[in-house]
Design a binder for these strands. Sequence first.
DNA 1: AGAGAATTTCACCAACGGGTTATATAAGTC
DNA 2: GACTTATATAACCCGTTGGTGAAATTCTCT
Lengths: 99, 99
Amino acid sequence: MLGDPVRRRILELLADGEQTAGAVGGAILAEFGISQPAVSRHLRVLRESGFATVRSDGSRRLYAVDPAPLQKVDIWLDRFRRFWTRRLDALDTELTRRA
Amino acid sequence: MLGDPVRRRILELLADGEQTAGAVGGAILAEFGISQPAVSRHLRVLRESGFATVRSDGSRRLYAVDPAPLQKVDIWLDRFRRFWTRRLDALDTELTRRA
DNA sequence: AGAGAATTTCACCAACGGGTTATATAAGTC
DNA sequence: GACTTATATAACCCGTTGGTGAAATTCTCT
């Protein structure tokens, strides 16, 4: 899912707030050069896998991030976090000691 | 990459410490019922994409997590973290106030 | 050197993913 | 109601992925 850079980019765009499908399409077209239907399918995938939500506003469709699955990823990462927090902790205490 | 559940599971196994290819293979065989060569290829993918490292010990090959790419994911998630930390912050300050 | 364990690589195949163009649906506008 | 804009779906193609069984590699042991 999040292995796809287009999809990751779309989520980044949505992170700044709701976007119409058209706005997302335009940005992705500009950055990746892929067609509108392709973007529409990415949006569908994001929707169906829970990473994004949609609501209709007239003829527009407004997409937004649904944080729940991302938080799941975050929680999953927890078991690995010690691998890099250790260094930081060590650095932190070292800095504290010097000060 | 991490879209594959087998690969995610392998990383979980490695999170508990170095494992031989055989140990990983056994666990994955038990849980997913896929062959040992298949697991070996998953290990190769993990290795080549930087999520795991190997060292040889006699005829054994010991795999371990390389946290760097996972930390990249963690950093990427940062921009979304506000979506779920807000609630927690609110809860936190509430608890603090009560105390 | 020969046998056996641990692991990887090879050749192959079916399923899937992500792109394209063409077409459908739905809502605003004249 | 016809026309345009916004978005989604359909049908199709092709490269990649993930599985398999068979064979190669590497190390250990006697």
